[in-house]
Amino acid sequence: MPSNRAWFDLPQLGPAGSWRDVGIAVGRGALVVGFLVLVYSMVPVDGFNDERAVAAWVRLVAVGLAFLLVLGVELRIVASSHAPMIRAAEAVVESVVAFVCLFALLHLSISTTDDQSFSEPLDRLDALYFTSGTLATVGFGDITPVDPLARTVVTVQMLAGLGVLVIVVKAAFHAASRSRRP
């Protein structure tokens, strides 16, 4: 028998599933996203050189590990939340923004090393714009990777981005469904 309930029914979000909880989550999410963007704008970025060519790969691994750390923290918070479904949605947004900021720093670092790595030199806003467009699969074509290192890192970002969207959503809502609710 079909239900007359809307697909987004607040009582199904958990015992604390109220508009107040949604408002708190939106506010908290905005603060976390703002903090991530602030950190992104303040982290010093230097380039690589021939003597430190392996640094690009080390940074790529560091980006992956940093993202896994953020995701792990987010999942623990979801599992212990009193409104886990709301917190899971918040965790998805925060994790994706962290992913974008981390890869934007990597693209910026590559561009700082060689301003010919992309079709134009990237500043912080350009790197964030390019990374967001790549993740969203929009790819306007105004900024493109040109050299092999930039193309490789962007390819890794594209493949990882597809997986991140699926894995983060699945993991966050799985943690929410298994949480210890009062």
Rank of each mutant, 00 (worst) to 15 (best):
R5S: 12
L13C: 08
W57P: 01
K170N: 12
L71I: 10
T155R: 00
G141V: 11
E51N: 10
L69T: 14
E90K: 09
A127C: 07
I86Q: 01
I167R: 11
A150L: 03
L31H: 00
Y129I: 10
W7L: 15
P84M: 07
S119R: 00
T112F: 00
Q116P: 00
S3N: 14
V32I: 15
V73N: 05
V37R: 02
C101G: 08
I167A: 15
V153M: 09
S41C: 09
L71E: 14
L128T: 02
L125V: 14
A79M: 04
S111C: 08
C101W: 03
G64M: 06
S109I: 05
P145S: 05
V26K: 04
V153P: 01
P11F: 05
Y40R: 03
V97I: 10
P11M: 09
Y40E: 05
V168Q: 06
A91G: 08
A104Y: 01
L75I: 14
V39Y: 00
R52Y: 04
S18Y: 06
L10F: 06
N4P: 05
V168L: 09
E51W: 05
V37E: 11
A88H: 02
Q12L: 14
L159R: 07
V39S: 02
G141N: 07
L108N: 04
D50G: 13
G163Q: 08
F48D: 08
V168R: 02
D9T: 10
A88L: 04
L165I: 14
S41T: 13
L165G: 15
V92N: 08
A16V: 12
L31M: 12
F140E: 12
W57C: 03
G27P: 06
L69C: 14
E120T: 12
A171N: 07
F99N: 03
P44W: 04
V61T: 10
A175Q: 10
P148V: 04
L106K: 02
V92Y: 07
A25K: 04
G163K: 01
L162H: 11
R59M: 14
A98C: 06
L135V: 07
W19V: 15
T112A: 09
G17S: 08
D9E: 11
P11L: 07
L10M: 08
T112I: 05
A83W: 04
G14K: 04
D46N: 07
F67I: 06
E74G: 12
L31D: 08
W19F: 14
A160C: 13
G47P: 03
W57R: 02
A79C: 01
V39M: 03
F173T: 10
L75S: 09
